[in-house]
Design a protein around this nucleic acid. Structure first.
Lengths: 229, 229
DNA sequence: CAAAAAAGAGCGAGCGTTCGTTTTTTATGA
DNA sequence: TCATAAAAAACGAACGCTCGCTCTTTTTTG
């Protein structure tokens, strides 16, 4: 599997994501027409992610967002009740997609090393498709209020746990070396996150997401596979 | 070398760091008495780091900082000319220390693997001693204006380059496997940074910095040392 | 007592938010 | 098909509040 294959298998559209959000947030979104709501939500979220990733969510004002979207201040408030709620919605936007796609992509794969490879690839390709969201989610998590913050931390630990379980499985089957599952999963996660957090650096060096995936799988295999040790 | 040894060898005091800043910023710091200036700079920086790391530099107001330090608004402005300058000073605060300590700790070590181990340990122990600064520097870099932003990026790449050069040296001496220097150095850096960026997670799991150092050296050795491969 | 340090009230600007008004869209009836 | 009325969407001025910052007065230090 490579990035091009992934993209054609897993079609993630902003419209679908915003439709889900629209249906879940009828109380906050005062727009009746689905088509209008979705079109504008996409515009709002794109602009908000871009502005926030540049200067931070708090430093972005709603006047900035108004200018960037071409919607008035009053119109913006048809889509969320407060700036804080916008933050929550932005954070929530991608979370269910991620979980669903990773779990889906691992279905039917039993071999631990194949699972590990697929998990690494899936994570990287997802973050490539939705880089601005991942960057935003990482950087702004600490601004979330209690319950949303808890959910964000859980999502962080959930994907790490996917790796941890693959490692456990591999060790139990005698396929992987006997390593610390938690620390290894955390280290893999750190390297996966580096991809989207420092996209500027890898882009500057012309490292493709497939290059990076290959490198990571190589790096991880040296540690996990006894054949290599 | 372990963390306790490091701490007694490398004494980093906030007072020394603030003294350097005081001497370099006579234009911005209107206080004449070195003792008073340094004492209050330490207080200001500690409070600013804590507040910023909790809610973001922009979301922290100077009234927040005033309350946290016990200094009035007017007194705060004796120490910096603007909030933006405070950001610059905070970012600059630790940069020279880091460079100096890493370079010092590598002196007299020729063996590539020994250098690698020392570099990993030094980086981790430094970030353990100055965790709040490192977290702040990582999270707030994007808010810096042009020249300061450039310096921060350079510092980021400088430490990564230390690892890259060690790898190059190891490959040239036939000690290390033939791997991508840049990607390997970046991966090591990512794992090192994870330590201070997700300090909450490792603390919750009761992983000591020495545990983490040992784990990282093991992980990296599996990839770099042909004996392992 | 003089110099240095600190306090704190208040300024103008910008912020998030509200709400009455205007514009656009849509459905209906002739 | 066209005109009209109602519903929906959008606008934008203004409110109260907080912000960064200034500057005169007060307090502390040596």
């Amino acid at each position: 599997m490579n990035f091009e294959t992934f993209k054609s298998l897993v079609r993630i559209s902003k419209e679908d994501i915003c439709r889900e959000l629209f249906l879940e947030n009828k109380n906050s979104i005062k727009i009746k027409k689905e088509g209008v709501a979705i079109k504008n939500l996409v515009t709002i979220f794109d602009a908000a992610l871009q502005l926030s990733n540049k200067k931070g969510f708090f430093a972005m004002s709603l006047r900035d967002l108004s200018a960037a979207t071409g919607l008035s201040m009053g119109a913006l408030y048809s889509y969320f009740n407060s700036k804080e709620e916008l933050l929550d919605m932005l954070q929530r936007q991608g979370r269910t997609v991620i979980t669903r796609v990773i779990v889906d992509q691992l279905k039917g794969i039993d071999d631990p090393w194949e699972r590990m490879k697929r998990a690494i690839q899936t994570h990287l390709y997802l973050t490539e498709v939705m880089q601005s969201w991942f960057y935003f989610a990482y950087m702004e998590t600490k601004n979330l209020k209690k319950n949303e913050h808890k959910l964000a931390i859980e999502a962080e630990l959930f994907t790490e746990n996917i790796f941890s379980e693959i490692i456990e499985q591999g060790i139990n089957k005698g396929v992987f070396a006997d390593v610390s599952q938690e620390l290894t999963a955390a280290a893999i996660k750190a390297m996966l996150q580096d991809w989207y957090l420092k996209r500027w650096k890898y882009a500057g060096r012309q490292v493709s997401v497939d290059d990076y995936a290959r490198f990571l799988m190589d790096f991880v295999s040296a540690f996990l596979l006894p054949v290599n040790r």
